[in-house]
Simulated assay, not measured.
Amino acid sequence: MGFRIHFVVDPHGWCCLAVIVCVWLFNVAIIPKIIILPHYEEGHIPGALVILFYGLAIFCLVALVRASITDPGRLPENPKIPHGEREFWELCNKCNLMRPKRSHHCSRCGHCVRRMDHHCPWINNCVGEDNHWLFLQLCFYTELLTSYALMFAFCHYYYFLPLKKRNLDLFIVRHELAIMRFATLLGITMLVGITGLFYTQLIGIITDTTSIEKMSNCCEEISRPRKPWQQTFSEVFGTRWKILWFIPFRQRQPLRVPYHFANHV
């Protein structure tokens, strides 16, 4: 499956995405300037920790950009229904187009998405079959980056040796305490929110249930066969190689999902 760029024309979504980008820029610019780089220059921390911070920041940004512009699984206007699978397709009552079961019509985007989990304004895109793995990586690396920044903020005041070389003419140095208080509050808020979202996403994958299916109460847990968690994660990430689940630079190759396991929306 080739990579298709997907843009959602939604001013509200653009504003939410801009907020996330600004938060990322704030953390990547301010935390190293105040804490990481000065302590590295004075020999308090090794260079590996600096590389790790920027590595997490790059992985987080790549996952954000790709989750935002990747086609989540939008169905074409005239889909080709494979022979022998017509019974697993249904007619959408909103756009009057055929779609596979477990698809959902997004009212904000105006089209059906395969195995749609939800529409996320923070990435200005639906979370569906083709970009769900990127959304999971975004949650994962945001948690790591935020936790890493909070750890450095704590160590800066309670563990590291005091900095000797400080340029008091810099604005961020003169207002360091206020900036770090704001950064800590922002980090804790992000960490709590992302942790809750990431947890619900993991539970949904383990139980092979989307957020929309949970809200519609359409899943019959007794009659529906349960897949092993390795299989459900492999289907979402498009590979059985677990190390590749953490790489946002690769191209996803979808694994075929047996329809007899499917939930119906």
Rank of each mutant, 00 (worst) to 15 (best):
T200R: 15
C22G: 06
L144F: 12
K242A: 13
A48Q: 09
I172E: 07
L136H: 12
F198V: 02
R66T: 01
L61G: 00
S107C: 11
M1Q: 07
P32S: 04
V19R: 11
T200F: 09
R108H: 03
R4Y: 12
E176L: 03
I36V: 15
T239V: 04
I188A: 06
W133L: 03
E213G: 01
D71V: 14
P82A: 01
F140H: 15
T239F: 06
R4T: 13
H104D: 04
I179S: 02
I58Q: 09
G55L: 11
S147R: 05
F3R: 10
A183D: 10
Q137F: 06
V236M: 05
R226G: 03
G110K: 09
K227A: 13
R250F: 01
V257K: 09
I172L: 11
H104Y: 11
M116C: 02
T195P: 00
G84K: 13
R240N: 12
F140C: 10
I206P: 01
A63F: 05
P248L: 09
K164E: 06
F59Q: 02
R114Y: 07
V50L: 10
Y158Q: 13
L244N: 04
A183Y: 11
L202N: 15
V127E: 04
N131D: 00
N167K: 09
E176W: 10
R86E: 14
R4N: 09
G128S: 05
E85S: 09
I212C: 07
Y54I: 06
M180I: 09
I194N: 06
C106F: 14
C95G: 02
G110R: 12
N96Y: 14
L197F: 05
N78A: 07
F160V: 06
C106Q: 05
M215Y: 13
C218R: 08
E42R: 07
N78V: 08
L138C: 00
I35T: 00
R66I: 10
R66N: 08
M151T: 14
D71A: 10
A178R: 13
H111Y: 15
D208K: 14
K94Y: 12
G128I: 06
D71K: 11
C112L: 11
L145Y: 04
E41G: 03
R102Y: 04
E77G: 14
T209Y: 05
F154L: 15
C16A: 13
T207G: 02
L186F: 08
I69H: 11
V127K: 04
E221Y: 14
F26E: 02
K94W: 01
Q253N: 14
